[in-house]
Protein backbone atom coordinates (compact mmCIF):
# COMPACT_ATOMS: atom_id res chain seq x y z
CA UNK A 1 0.00 0.00 0.00
CA UNK A 2 1.45 3.39 -0.95
CA UNK A 3 1.69 6.39 1.32
CA UNK A 4 -1.05 8.00 -0.79
CA UNK A 5 -3.39 5.10 -0.01
CA UNK A 6 -2.72 5.41 3.71
CA UNK A 7 -3.55 9.09 3.81
CA UNK A 8 -7.25 9.00 3.29
CA UNK A 9 -10.05 6.60 2.75
CA UNK A 10 -12.86 7.38 0.30
CA UNK A 11 -15.14 9.80 2.05
CA UNK A 12 -13.38 9.24 5.34
CA UNK A 13 -11.08 11.42 7.36
CA UNK A 14 -7.42 11.59 6.39
CA UNK A 15 -4.67 10.66 8.83
CA UNK A 16 -3.39 13.16 11.37
CA UNK A 17 -0.44 14.05 9.22
CA UNK A 18 1.93 14.09 12.20
CA UNK A 19 3.97 11.16 10.91
CA UNK A 20 3.48 12.10 7.27
CA UNK A 21 6.65 12.81 5.29
CA UNK A 22 7.83 16.40 5.11
CA UNK A 23 6.11 18.13 2.23
CA UNK A 24 3.13 15.82 2.29
CA UNK A 25 -0.34 17.38 2.57
CA UNK A 26 -2.94 15.16 4.25
CA UNK A 27 -5.68 15.47 1.62
CA UNK A 28 -8.43 12.87 1.58
CA UNK A 29 -9.15 11.03 -1.70
CA UNK A 30 -12.21 13.20 -2.20
CA UNK A 31 -10.05 16.31 -1.84
CA UNK A 32 -7.53 14.89 -4.31
CA UNK A 33 -10.36 14.35 -6.79
CA UNK A 34 -11.33 17.99 -6.32
CA UNK A 35 -7.76 19.10 -7.03
CA UNK A 36 -7.61 16.85 -10.10
CA UNK A 37 -10.85 18.29 -11.49
CA UNK A 38 -9.69 21.85 -10.79
CA UNK A 39 -6.58 21.02 -12.85
CA UNK A 40 -8.78 19.64 -15.66
CA UNK A 41 -11.00 22.74 -15.74
CA UNK A 42 -8.05 25.10 -15.53
CA UNK A 43 -6.51 23.30 -18.52
CA UNK A 44 -9.82 23.52 -20.39
CA UNK A 45 -10.10 27.27 -19.74
CA UNK A 46 -6.48 27.80 -20.81
CA UNK A 47 -6.91 25.89 -24.08
CA UNK A 48 -10.30 27.51 -24.82
CA UNK A 49 -8.87 30.99 -24.17
CA UNK A 50 -6.00 30.39 -26.59
CA UNK A 51 -8.38 28.97 -29.25
CA UNK A 52 -10.82 31.86 -28.83
CA UNK A 53 -7.97 34.39 -28.88
CA UNK A 54 -6.51 32.90 -32.08
CA UNK A 55 -9.87 32.93 -33.89
CA UNK A 56 -10.57 36.50 -32.68
CA UNK A 57 -7.12 37.62 -33.78
CA UNK A 58 -7.64 36.05 -37.21
CA UNK A 59 -10.94 37.88 -37.64
CA UNK A 60 -9.45 41.20 -36.50
CA UNK A 61 -6.54 40.77 -38.90
CA UNK A 62 -8.86 40.00 -41.85
CA UNK A 63 -11.24 42.88 -40.98
CA UNK A 64 -8.76 45.58 -40.05
CA UNK A 65 -5.73 44.54 -42.07
CA UNK A 66 -2.31 45.80 -41.09
CA UNK A 67 -3.77 48.57 -38.89
CA UNK A 68 -5.10 45.96 -36.47
CA UNK A 69 -1.81 44.14 -36.11
CA UNK A 70 -0.65 45.97 -32.96
CA UNK A 71 -3.92 45.62 -31.02
CA UNK A 72 -4.31 42.01 -32.19
CA UNK A 73 -0.75 41.13 -31.16
CA UNK A 74 -1.13 42.74 -27.72
CA UNK A 75 -4.48 41.01 -27.17
CA UNK A 76 -3.07 37.64 -28.26
CA UNK A 77 0.05 38.05 -26.08
CA UNK A 78 -2.05 38.84 -23.00
CA UNK A 79 -4.35 35.87 -23.69
CA UNK A 80 -1.34 33.59 -24.15
CA UNK A 81 0.27 34.83 -20.91
CA UNK A 82 -2.91 34.23 -18.88
CA UNK A 83 -3.37 30.80 -20.47
CA UNK A 84 0.23 29.83 -19.69
CA UNK A 85 -0.30 30.80 -16.02
CA UNK A 86 -3.46 28.67 -15.88
CA UNK A 87 -1.93 25.69 -17.71
CA UNK A 88 1.19 25.65 -15.52
CA UNK A 89 -0.95 26.03 -12.37
CA UNK A 90 -3.03 23.06 -13.57
CA UNK A 91 0.14 21.02 -14.13
CA UNK A 92 1.36 21.77 -10.58
CA UNK A 93 -2.01 20.91 -9.01
CA UNK A 94 -2.07 17.67 -10.99
CA UNK A 95 1.34 16.79 -9.52
CA UNK A 96 -0.06 17.24 -5.98
CA UNK A 97 -2.40 14.33 -6.63
CA UNK A 98 0.08 12.28 -8.66
CA UNK A 99 3.04 12.38 -6.28
CA UNK A 100 3.59 11.85 -2.56
CA UNK A 101 6.85 13.39 -1.50
CA UNK A 102 6.51 17.02 -2.52
CA UNK A 103 2.80 17.82 -2.18
CA UNK A 104 3.42 21.09 -0.37
CA UNK A 105 5.98 22.21 -2.93
CA UNK A 106 3.63 21.58 -5.87
CA UNK A 107 0.61 22.98 -4.02
CA UNK A 108 2.37 26.27 -3.25
CA UNK A 109 3.79 26.34 -6.78
CA UNK A 110 0.29 25.91 -8.22
CA UNK A 111 -1.11 28.59 -5.93
CA UNK A 112 1.75 30.93 -6.88
CA UNK A 113 0.88 30.52 -10.57
CA UNK A 114 -2.79 31.08 -9.80
CA UNK A 115 -1.71 34.24 -7.95
CA UNK A 116 0.15 35.37 -11.10
CA UNK A 117 -2.98 34.64 -13.15
CA UNK A 118 -5.32 36.63 -10.88
CA UNK A 119 -2.76 39.44 -10.42
CA UNK A 120 -2.42 39.86 -14.20
CA UNK A 121 -6.21 39.68 -14.62
CA UNK A 122 -6.67 42.29 -11.88
CA UNK A 123 -4.08 44.66 -13.38
CA UNK A 124 -5.71 44.30 -16.82
CA UNK A 125 -9.12 45.10 -15.31
CA UNK A 126 -7.69 48.17 -13.55
CA UNK A 127 -6.03 49.39 -16.78
CA UNK A 128 -9.24 48.79 -18.77
CA UNK A 129 -11.36 50.64 -16.19
CA UNK A 130 -8.90 53.53 -16.08
CA UNK A 131 -8.96 53.80 -19.88
CA UNK A 132 -12.77 53.65 -19.91
CA UNK A 133 -12.96 56.43 -17.30
CA UNK A 134 -10.48 58.55 -19.27
CA UNK A 135 -12.50 58.06 -22.48
CA UNK A 136 -15.74 59.03 -20.71
CA UNK A 137 -14.07 62.13 -19.21
CA UNK A 138 -12.61 63.06 -22.60
CA UNK A 139 -16.00 62.71 -24.31
CA UNK A 140 -17.73 64.72 -21.57
CA UNK A 141 -15.06 67.45 -21.74
CA UNK A 142 -15.32 67.68 -25.53
CA UNK A 143 -19.12 67.85 -25.23
CA UNK A 144 -18.96 70.69 -22.68
CA UNK A 145 -16.46 72.70 -24.76
CA UNK A 146 -18.70 72.70 -27.83
Amino acid sequence: MSTRDQVGSPGGAPSTGIDAPKGHVPFSREDQETLRSVAVWATAVGVLSIASGLVGAGISFVQEGISGVVSTTVSLAVTALLSVFLLTAAASLRKVTATDAADKLYLVDGLRKLRNYFMTTGILFIVAFSLAVLVVLFVLTCGMLR
Binding site: A13, P14, S15, T16, G17, I18, V25, P26, S28, K104
Partner: peptide, 13 residues
Protein backbone atom coordinates in the same frame (compact mmCIF):
# COMPACT_ATOMS: atom_id res chain seq x y z
CA UNK B 1 3.65 20.25 13.16
CA UNK B 2 0.97 20.89 15.75
CA UNK B 3 -2.44 19.25 15.40
CA UNK B 4 -5.20 21.83 15.67
CA UNK B 5 -7.67 21.32 18.43
CA UNK B 6 -11.16 20.66 17.18
CA UNK B 7 -10.18 20.17 13.55
CA UNK B 8 -12.90 18.12 11.93
CA UNK B 9 -10.61 16.53 9.37
CA UNK B 10 -7.75 15.80 11.75
CA UNK B 11 -5.08 16.56 9.17
CA UNK B 12 -2.85 19.58 9.45
CA UNK B 13 -1.06 21.70 6.88
Amino acid sequence: VVPLAGGADGGVL
